[in-house]
Design a protein around this nucleic acid. Structure first.
Lengths: 330, 330
DNA sequence: CTGTTAGCGCTTTCAC
DNA sequence: GTGAAAGCGCTAACAG
């Protein structure tokens, strides 16, 4: 880009000069404070002509609102997270806020780094989908005093506004759905059983009476899964239904089932958390538990904006339900 | 969050005082400029003890590097975009840069707004996956002089560094693949035929000799697609193969094929741009053209960092190829 | 090499 | 209401 003398962007000083008012009055006018009608008109006109844009860095430095919301999530590659991010961007924009997002790869150290980077940039509020060990990041958050919403937490946290999904209720609904179809042995497929959300699902699973349940937890190890699931499917007391803790695991399971030439729902039933765009396209379509992404995003934006308006509010908790969408796979 | 007297975060002034050096020396030490070994040690120790963190707003205000890269893309909900965003975040982090992303929903006005918001915050560089009418945004970009990479553009732009995919080559590969399997009539499914990338694909399609080609363009109108595709599939000179311009369209097509009880590849062949996580899970697995997401992201980061180091570089252009992954669907 | 000083663009007292 | 002036935290020029 050839430079030469790039005309520097106009400052509020330029605007004040052109409107023939003092710098302070220009500032007041542009930030919607009390000024005379004439002064306001002159300043706005000058700003328009000059193409003035407020410099958020300077504004933030002096301690005002930045108009930016931050979002930190474990990954953007899952349908659930991408959907939430997109919905949150909508909700934020509807409230005149910009969203800046960063992903943490499920790594607590990166999570903390991302949170701090956003805090350093003086975001007005932060939405966090916590990793498995979020304490370091949460400590930075409380220390900063920034308005924060924790999304997808197992239970309310007295330090923050929180939004949870009714994991236990969803699991109960899934089990009831399967029980009604005659299933008595269910295998739950999970990646990280220690993850709070997953743990809540497992707890609800264990609490169930009519169905014998078991858990296959494989971490990120695809190979382990590919080896272990077929073994479980051939065991004596083999499960008649699988519940996948997310759509990735459902994919993995589908691959195994195809390789084993097992048909749904005859040979085995499959039910999955997460409604991805492909889940109604399998043969037969998958029965899924769908998270109310848009409602979650809107609740997050609402909690944040209300707290910005009224910082003294006590921590609030919102519990949202998932929908069980029956497909042919169960 | 109960406040009381939250201890304000330490400034460089506090660090200087504790290290018994001047503010300037502290700044020099902390920004890695020339200072004596003792001074450096004292300052670093003080910063560590105090838990000092540079305030990027103040830093940016004075005109230094912000250490932040911006990413503006049309949407995060597609596998391709999400994959690119994630890969770019990796590439940026490997170079010590933070990535801030915002999506524009394919709307040129929002695109411009997002670009300006990022520029206002003094990002060091910006990666843009342009919408169909990016000129307004591009003008803001040239005016600001910020290092920029345009990704997924139909051709090199003399004002920016650019990264393109070889759309024509990919389309030729797809057609050759189909021709070799005896197909002579192909229908290309697109949403926005005017979109530059799509237009490039269509141009390559029309140029082909041995195969009769047609285009079904439906915009975002799912219902139109559901009505029109079956009609085309029942016409006299009906196509024997479909090429979907992205994985969403492939999904839509799969739904129609199932409803029409047409099997792949016997009744009809299907080939799709975009390798989504589910594309090898359909029955039979889909033949897809895969974009080299990681390579694209890394090229973008590389172009940006090299330009930051050397602003005078002439605009560069990178052309990357897609891979044709044969599945059973063709 | 070090310390002093002048801003970056804006908001915010505080007199008038 | 309005204007003058004092910073926000930091970097960069400049003298020592």
């Amino acid at each position: 880009v050839p430079d030469g003398t790039r005309p520097r962007p106009p400052t509020i000083r330029d605007v004040a000069a052109r409107a023939q008012v003092s710098l302070g009055t220009a500032s007041n006018a542009l930030s919607g404070r009390a000024v005379s009608a004439e002064a306001r008109a002159a300043v706005e006109e000058a700003a328009r002509v000059l193409g003035w844009r407020a410099n958020p860095l300077a504004r933030g430095l002096r301690g005002a609102r930045s108009g930016v919301l931050g979002l930190v999530l474990p990954s953007i590659a899952s349908a659930f997270h991408a959907g939430f991010a997109e919905a949150l961007e909508d909700s934020a924009e509807a409230r005149g806020l910009l969203l800046m997002q960063a992903s943490a790869r499920g790594d607590p150290a990166q999570e903390k780094a991302r949170i701090e980077a956003l805090l350093d940039r003086r975001v007005d509020g932060l939405v966090l989908l916590p990793s498995s060990a979020p304490e370091a990041g949460l400590a930075a958050l409380t220390a900063s005093g920034t308005a924060t919403v924790l999304v997808n937490v197992p239970k309310a946290d007295p330090r923050f506004d929180t939004i949870s999904l009714d994991e236990a209720g969803a699991m109960r609904a899934a089990l009831a759905h399967l029980a009604a179809r005659g299933h008595r042995r269910v295998l739950f497929l999970a990646r990280y059983p220690k993850l709070a959300v997953t743990a809540a699902r497992i707890a609800a699973l264990k609490r169930h009476r009519r169905i014998a349940t078991d858990v296959l937890a494989v971490g990120a190890d695809h190979a382990l899964f590919d080896g272990e699931l077929p073994r479980r499917l051939r065991a004596r007391a083999r499960p008649t239904a699988l519940i996948a803790s997310n759509s990735i695991l459902a994919l993995w399971a589908l691959r195994v089932l195809r390789r084993e030439a097992m048909a749904m729902p005859g040979d085995i039933a499959l039910l999955s958390f997460d409604a991805a765009d492909w889940t109604d396209l399998t043969d037969p379509p998958l029965t899924v538990l769908r998270q109310p992404v848009a409602a979650m995003a809107d609740a997050a934006a609402e909690l944040l904006t209300s707290r910005l308006a009224q910082p003294g509010l006590p921590p609030r908790h919102r519990l949202l339900r998932m929908d069980l969408l029956p497909g042919g796979s169960t």
